[in-house]
Design a protein around this nucleic acid. Structure first.
Length: 1059
RNA sequence: GCCCAGGUGGCGGAAUUGGUAGACGCGAUAGACUCAAAAUCUAUUGAUGGCAACAUCAUGAGAGUUCGAUUCUCUCCCUGGGCACCA
């Protein structure tokens, strides 16, 4: 139910009792539809391309036509820009105030899934409703330029722009861990994940590997940040953009890993399977020997070839001991148990028998641990010296050798096994596995830090669990079991789990490896922890627990050393048990001690051979959606040619009809099921190929729509250069501060001529909820198009403002589910569009959130009725009096009175014109309206006293009112005999001289407390005024005979007497 | 936790950026008109005391600067929005 009273459902009607004459009522229903039709017929609000008038391009965010219909929030934003646009039009501008539909999106698709109604139909129905509602509010949109992102004629160009990204290498496909919503079955951009949950449905997001199209917005991160200096956005919008881009200046510094434990490369042994030339020619692939290709080549191909036959033979005829031993080892029961499906025995101590190492056939070998197990049978006794030699050679190659006798194995197999286990555990500290040879390579961990000045306090390193070095160090890590477990657990965590654990940091030390602090040369431990993010910086940090809260917390938890290296200056030190993260003076840092920390940053980077580096939080934009209701990505995948763009002449790639809109369970788009659409000829080689079935996110169409408005029907280009130039760059008479012209060459070459770089949509208003994403994305697209010299400006919008949200009466969000929404149709019917517009502007400060209260709408309604009443009286006045205010029966004395009333009303009118003119520019609509209310009240009381208002003055009042309440203003304007629309009639000017007051009232204070008010003439001297103040009776009483120590006069404000 | 707004009558909100706090509107109370109601008009409407003139107290709380603070500074509390381990 709605929150307004049913007793108010009848429109307040005006019954004027002005003597004998019955006046007409203010019938908003009649007036509003009449003028809406009239404006449309006469095309009053159609913008001309390339007019001689100065241009003004005012923009609002085009709405998503939801099934819920127009929201009062839309009206607030649209009315504000409408007021500004109407004012500009009256000021003589050629105004473009366009409208369209951002119609791709999930709600429509979900509705289609539920009902089976095609999204095209749903969209058409919804836009029809929205259009009707918007028209009923009398917005001065240029409806001839209406656009719709789901129209193939429109999205042809969205696809075309995407292809430009693709051609320049800024659109690429990457397998990334994406945020996956298991409910919507859709990949989400990072921005769409709110608190670890899907922005739309609130389901916890999980991680999933998926090939996705990406747009390289990070390539523009720097410019997106810096160029904010050149535009006029509300400060808080700039702050939000900057926070999102997250620029931070720092350095990359290498920390060497202590490599004394790494072994040199095994001599003469080929590495890697690929290099191996099969000894059996083409026949040797798989299925040789034990039936598997050797994973590690421990000898060269020639020797292998020579010995392989013998090895096979020996395997077939094992001795007793060998047989028992093989049974012990082959079951892999030396391997620690692993959870099911955790890869193929990654930590397994897999043994091979009769394996060829160099020129020997070793009995049993664990290659990963480089352990050889030999069985010395009685038969071999005489070969003792030869065994000795074997051992030596094997040792040289980095193998440990253990020997058992046949009888040992037969009698006590458990003992043998235990000895082998002990040996494995023992040697695991020292050796590296084959094929992951680290010997001779100097390994270093690159960290990113913004505080290189604190490097002396770096007491440990932390890597992200996903860091590639962790895998590389695998063989050196003594506690690999634990480490792996930690990594696996971390991978499985959902976003929500990771963020829910906010305060509790976890991590694990990589035992067996150490890093060297490059300045202190101390060995410091290396940890992995989930508080270090893989995607930011280098995915590795130097931890300085004394000067970073996170590192501090972590160090406390795990008992890591904390070393203070910054002393604060001019500020209180940190609280007990808290790290100090500010700047200060360097301490405990060798030759840098005593240096200012800011200065030390540069010096230390140099000293350690680091590199100054700027990093951004911004990540590339996941541009794929596995959904139906979006623009198809116009690419074809050919086995031969790879990804091939659909030729321009074949654009648009139209969304095919589909029976089911639901995404497939595999996560593919429903388009994947339409075989005859998916299968196409490769545009390049004409071979068989498949279409990309992903669609674009709903940010795509809105990233360039404001360009299309300049030339909405163009089917050769997304918009003509001529129109773009006119609407985006023609300077305003009073432009914003602009920087020097840019004539930089395009990084891509070619493009529009004479591109200047400065300009954009003159004024763009929208919601705070779009200040990060939509704004950033469209700036990115625009900059890209600018680099192609396809648009004339480097920024899309010169000025951006934001409106506050409209909340339900109790201050909660309006939502259909809560049932606290307001239906604009009812309000228009009951109160009229003009009243609704007035109310929404009067409700509170435009940029702040406000609570809806339908009861208060009666105020603006009464105001309009008052305006109507005054207008009627003027219109029905006798013609001879119509040009001047008058009194019905003027007498000599009244004439004086008349002119006094006239003068004061005229003065108030001029003040009001000034106030409204200025307030509109500052979007202070609420105070503009209040000043017009004051004026109307004064006019009415002038009438009540029997005096009049001149027609001329009243018409000026109608002019300043008309942007707010266009219908009633137009009607009264017409009633007063004007033939042309008020909306092109001109904006009244105020007379500077008229608004000056000759006589004003000022306050007199005694010791800062107001005690009296005195009238002064503004041309009085300060002395005269002070004298008047100190001789005032009330003032004297409060001074109580004391002398004035000091008398302060603030011009036209007050006098303060200090006693 | 960090960043950005904001906290003023019964309610939405003004206040020229340090200068008469509460404009304008809603609501409320009384009166006029009316058989009556609605609508409209008139008056009152921050709180407390007082017949009154008037006085005192009041802009989230507490301090400070100042002749003077809703406005500036500091500390704290609360509300809304944004970000969420970004090194």
């Amino acid at each position: 139910m709605r929150d307004y009273d049913h007793k108010k459902l009848d429109p307040p009607s005006l019954k004027l009792r002005t003597g004998k004459k019955k006046m007409t009522e203010y019938n908003h229903l009649k007036i509003e539809s009449k003028w809406q039709k009239e404006w449309e017929k006469k095309e009053v609000f159609q913008a001309e391309n390339n007019s001689k008038k100065p241009k003004f391009y005012g923009l609002i965010e085009f709405p998503y036509p939801s099934g819920a219909g127009l929201h009062v929030g839309h009206i607030r934003s649209n009315t504000a820009m409408d007021i500004i646009s109407r004012k500009r039009r009256m000021e003589g501008f050629n105004v473009l105030y366009p409208i369209g539909w951002d119609a791709f999106g999930l709600p429509t698709e979900n509705y289609a899934i539920k009902t089976g109604i095609h999204p095209i139909k749903v969209t058409k129905d919804n836009t029809d409703i929205f259009r009707k509602q918007l028209k009923a509010l009398g917005f001065s949109f240029d409806w001839s330029r209406e656009i719709n992102t789901t129209d193939p004629k429109y999205y042809k160009w969205t696809q075309w722009i995407f292809l430009q990204f693709f051609k320049k290498g800024l659109a690429y496909k990457a397998k990334t861990t994406i945020n996956w919503c298991p409910q919507d079955k859709i990949g989400l951009a990072n921005e769409e994940v709110v608190g670890g949950s899907c922005e739309r449905c609130g389901t916890p997001v999980i991680k999933k590997e998926k090939e996705q199209w990406m747009l390289a917005i990070t390539k523009y991160a720097d410019r997106l940040d810096k160029d904010l200096d050149t535009v006029d956005y509300l400060p808080k919008i700039k702050i939000q953009q900057r926070n999102w881009i997250g620029r931070s200046e720092g350095a990359e510094i290498d920390f060497r890993i202590n490599s004394t434990l790494a072994l040199p490369t095994s001599p003469g042994l080929p590495e890697g399977e690929g290099k191996f030339v099969s000894p059996f020619g083409g026949e040797f692939k798989k299925g040789v020997g034990e039936g598997e290709m050797p994973r590690y080549f421990t000898t060269n191909p020639e020797l292998w070839k020579a010995l392989q036959g013998k090895a096979l033979e020996m395997r077939k005829n094992p001795t007793n001991g060998e047989k028992i031993m093989w049974d012990l080892l082959r079951r892999n029961n030396l391997s620690p148990t692993l959870p099911e499906g955790e890869g193929e025995n990654p930590r397994g101590f897999h043994f091979r028998r009769q394996h060829i190492v160099d020129r020997f056939i070793a009995d049993f070998v664990c290659i990963e641990k480089k352990l050889v197990v030999e069985i010395d049978g009685d038969i071999h006794d005489y070969l003792k010296s030869e065994d000795q030699e074997r051992t030596e050679v094997l040792n040289q190659l980095g193998f440990e050798v253990v020997r058992f006798t046949n009888s040992e194995i037969i009698k006590k197999p458990e003992d043998v096994l235990r000895k082998i286990i002990l040996k494995i555990n023992d040697i695991s500290k020292k050796v590296l596995s084959f094929g992951e040879d680290l010997g001779g390579v100097e390994l270093a961990i690159k960290v990113f830090t913004t505080r290189p000045d604190t490097i002396f306090g770096a007491t440990y390193l932390v890597l992200a669990p996903e860091h590639e070095l962790v895998q590389k160090l695998k063989s050196q890590i003594l506690n690999w079991d634990e480490v792996l477990r930690y990594i696996v657990v971390n991978e499985k965590k959902t976003e929500i789990e990771r963020t829910a654990e906010d305060k509790i940091k976890t991590g694990i030390e990589l035992k067996g490896v150490k890093a060297i602090n490059p300045v202190t040369k101390e060995e410091i431990p290396i940890w992995i922890a989930d508080y270090v993010l893989p995607h930011y910086g280098t995915g590795a940090i130097m931890a300085v627990p004394a000067h970073d809260e996170r590192d501090f917390e972590f160090a406390k938890k795990y008992g890591l050393p904390i070393k203070n290296v910054i002393e604060p200056v001019f500020v209180e030190g940190p609280k007990e048990g808290m790290p100090y993260s500010g700047e200060g003076i360097i301490a405990n840092s060798g030759k840098f001690s005593g240096m200012d920390s800011e200065k030390a940053k540069k010096e230390i980077i140099k000293f350690v051979g680091g590199k100054a580096k700027t990093t951004f939080k911004l990540r590339d934009w996941v541009f794929s959606r596995q959904r139906y209701w979006g623009e198809p990505i116009p690419l074809v995948n050919c086995a031969k040619c790879g990804w091939v763009p659909v030729p321009e002449k074949d654009l648009p790639v139209v969304l095919p009809k589909v029976a089911k809109y639901k995404p497939t369970n595999t996560g593919e788009s429903p388009l994947a099921d339409i075989k005859n659409w998916v299968n196409v000829k490769c545009p390049k080689c004409k071979g068989p190929a498949k279409r990309e079935t992903d669609t674009m996110p709903n940010w795509a169409g809105s990233s360039w729509y404001f360009l299309r408005y300049t030339d909405p029907k163009n089917n050769k280009e997304f918009a003509s250069g001529k129109n773009l130039k006119y609407w985006l760059t023609t300077p305003l008479p009073n432009p914003l501060q602009r920087r020097g012209k840019e004539f930089k060459a395009s990084p891509f070459g070619g493009g529009m001529e004479g591109v200047e770089g400065q300009g954009g949509v003159d004024w763009y208003n929208g919601g705070m909820e779009h200040t990060t994403l939509h704004l950033l994305y469209s700036r990115f697209w625009h900059k890209f198009l600018y680099d192609l010299r396809m648009v004339p400006t480097s920024e899309p919008y010169l000025k951006r403002t934001s409106h506050g949200m409209i909340l339900a009466p109790q201050g909660e969000k309006m939502s259909k589910s809560k049932g606290n929404t307001v239906n604009p149709d009812d309000l228009i019917r009951i109160y009229g569009a003009d009243t609704l517009r007035m109310y929404e502007m009067f409700i509170g400060p435009f940029d702040q959130a406000v609570s809806w209260n339908t009861d208060s709408m009666i105020g603006p309604r009464r105001f309009l009725e008052r305006v109507w009443k005054i207008g009627e009286r003027i219109a029905t006045r006798k013609p001879k009096n119509s040009s001047r205010f008058t009194r019905q029966n003027p007498t000599g004395s009244d004439a004086t009175q008349n002119s006094l009333v006239s003068a004061s009303l005229s003065k108030l009118l001029n003040k009001t014109i000034k106030k409204v003119s200025e307030d509109v520019e500052e979007m202070r609509f609420n105070t503009a309206i209040s000043s017009m209310m004051i004026l109307a009240n004064e006019m009415e009381s002038a009438f009540a006293q029997g005096y009049g208002v001149t027609k001329k003055d009243y018409k000026k009042f109608l002019q300043i009112l008309s942007p707010f309440a266009p219908h009633i203003a137009e009607e009264l304007w017409n009633m007063l005999g004007e033939k042309n629309s008020i909306s092109i009639s001109g904006w009244p000017k105020w007379d500077k001289n008229l608004i000056k007051d000759e006589e004003i009232k000022i306050a007199v204070q005694v010791n800062g407390k107001v005690r009296a008010e005195i009238m002064i003439r503004t041309d009085n001297s300060e002395e005269e005024i002070k004298k008047k103040a100190v001789t005032n009776k009330t003032v004297l009483r409060h001074m109580a005979g004391r002398d004035a120590k000091k008398v302060i006069y603030v011009k036209n404000r007050l006098v303060n007497i200090v006693v």
